[in-house]
Simulated scan of single mutants.
Amino acid sequence: VGSSWGDGRVARRDELRPDFEGTEAISEVSGERELVFQGRWQRYLLSAVVTSGCLAPPVVIMFVSLNLQGYIDPDHAGLLGFQVYLPSVARHAAKGALLDPAGSLSLLPVLLHGVAIALLNSIYKRVAHALTDLENHTTQRAHDNSLILKRFCFEAFDCYVALFYIAFGQQDVDRLRVELVSLFSSDTLRRIATESVLPLALLKFEAW
């Protein structure tokens, strides 16, 4: 019971993590000596603060991408008191400009956004591992659950925040459909390139 509440006691059904650091104390439940760690909630708080800060870059990149696609105009200039319409960026999506939605480079911002999402996820993966190690979990199960929760929350936010903004901020179903298809297509191309084409090219290069 004590372990299920996360108070640092060793779970009987799980093995002690080799990297766990604790102090010996008498268990109030079993009366036996076991390792305990009392300061985990402060480290949970640190993880929450750091992760919250890590959510800022995906938001900034998302709004830059939407401006480059011409999705944000002066009619949707603000959100929660923040200026999200960036005239110096949005002008590139104007009619006749480099990223004109009717032009051949209209998908470039989406492709770059997909690459940025993958890069941010990769960076946060390392941050999540470091934060979870710092939390000093007693068992491997608790460690893995904490790591999975962090990565799921960050990567879900990173991938879908643009869709939520279009769906609920702009309430534009047509743009939502286009953005969803574009993100899916660009991510598919990225995966093919990084997981199939690039490894094959490197293999051929090494053989050559």
Rank of each mutant, 00 (worst) to 15 (best):
F184Y: 14
G2L: 13
L80I: 14
I148E: 11
Y85K: 02
V36A: 04
R190C: 04
G8N: 10
L147G: 03
Q171P: 00
F168K: 03
A94T: 09
V197S: 00
L183K: 07
L202G: 01
S88R: 03
V115S: 02
S186I: 13
R33Y: 11
A201L: 04
A90I: 07
C54K: 06
L189I: 15
R9A: 12
G39C: 06
G6H: 10
L79H: 04
V161F: 12
Y165R: 03
V84W: 07
F82P: 00
V127R: 06
G81P: 02
F37W: 15
E206H: 01
V60E: 06
N136L: 08
F20L: 01
A90N: 04
E135K: 07
G2P: 03
L16H: 06
A94Q: 14
E34F: 10
N121H: 10
A201N: 00
W208D: 05
W41I: 11
A118V: 12
V49D: 10
G81K: 01
D19E: 11
L149C: 08
T138I: 09
A116M: 08
R9G: 01
H113E: 06
T23R: 06
Y160M: 04
L112P: 02
F152D: 09
S182N: 13
E15G: 05
G96C: 10
L79S: 02
S104D: 13
F157K: 04
